[in-house]
Design a protein around this nucleic acid. Structure first.
Lengths: 169, 169
DNA sequence: TATTGTTATACTCTATAACTATA
DNA sequence: TATAGTTATAGAGTATAACAATA
């Protein structure tokens, strides 16, 4: 709550707005492609992609929620859809019976594979076409640094995951 | 539908995912700040910010929709909320009776002013803190180029009808 | 008691299509 | 006819809180 913060200068504002706008436009374009080619939402694609990349195609619910969604009930909802569509399975974890292990199925991998070429196409056309190789390197390195910073320093309000006992009444 | 598209290489994938992740995390953090300090959603803030920046605090509905939202009914919904809250007014345009001119009110500007310091704080902490001046410049220039490219080449499915308008006043 | 996940519920938001009014 | 905007509606998605089961 530092109120004496100096305003962002023009360069910062420009970068900030450009970033948000690019993110929005890209997500929007990609969402349409995913919906058309695989009947997937952006979140669902992200979940499948993370699973496809994970060690044995598996990941715990909470970890997935940490990755892409911001509430566990939201993830339960999405996982329910993916499960019903046969793209993932859910089993109780062997080591911790409280946990649920989510695993991508063959059908899930197939959907990812089917959707990916067009997806990549959209991203390339919108994001990479106007960029030189050098631009790409810089962009990646800068954004990776920012992401790590964001992940390392959760803004304290991002997740009330540990119930802080807010004294009910 | 180019199926023979080469996949994105590792560097491209990394930049793409980092961009989307950074955008999501930043938007999420900012949204919480906006909700807490001014009871605004991200879209509503964007609308008010665009209006506050516009010539006489005014803008046409369609132009606003082009700016931030992707359907005019969606904008009507948001404008209805902002109108009811007294943050904007809507009047028929003087030159074209079909158009509606949206204008930010004093209360609207006040809300923006009240919300802005904390907003800027969040953005600085999350986005700019880990960046050098040089990084910032590069990021801004690259992303601005990308945005212009995206705006210039609508992905053909972004807007069924209304977007075909390269006709200036 | 703390953690994992689900459920019930209420709410926000978005988009499509039909409609009115003006150009 | 084409454009600007609203409305009706329906659906997707999200978060909060209460809940059960396990650690």
């Amino acid at each position: 709550m530092t109120d004496d913060a100096p305003p962002l200068d023009g360069e910062q504002l420009g970068a900030y707005f450009a970033l948000m706008e690019v993110g929005s436009l890209l997500q929007h374009a990609v969402e349409q492609q995913l919906r058309a080619s695989g009947d997937l939402s952006w979140v669902q694609f992200q979940l499948l992609a993370r699973l496809a990349d994970a060690p044995r195609g598996s990941r715990r619910m909470t970890d997935l929620a940490d990755d892409v969604v911001y509430s566990r009930s939201g993830l339960t909802y999405q996982a329910g859809l993916l499960d019903k569509a046969g793209l993932i399975t859910r089993q109780p974890s062997t080591d911790d019976e409280r946990s649920t292990t989510v695993t991508i199925t063959g059908a899930g991998r197939a959907v990812v594979a089917r959707v990916l070429p067009g997806h990549v196409d959209v991203v390339r056309q919108l994001l990479f076409d106007p960029l030189s190789r050098h631009d790409l390197g810089t962009l990646g390195s800068v954004l990776t640094r920012v992401r790590d910073h964001m992940r390392a320093a959760p803004p304290r309000s991002a997740k009330p995951r540990s119930r802080t006992k807010p004294r009910p009444e």
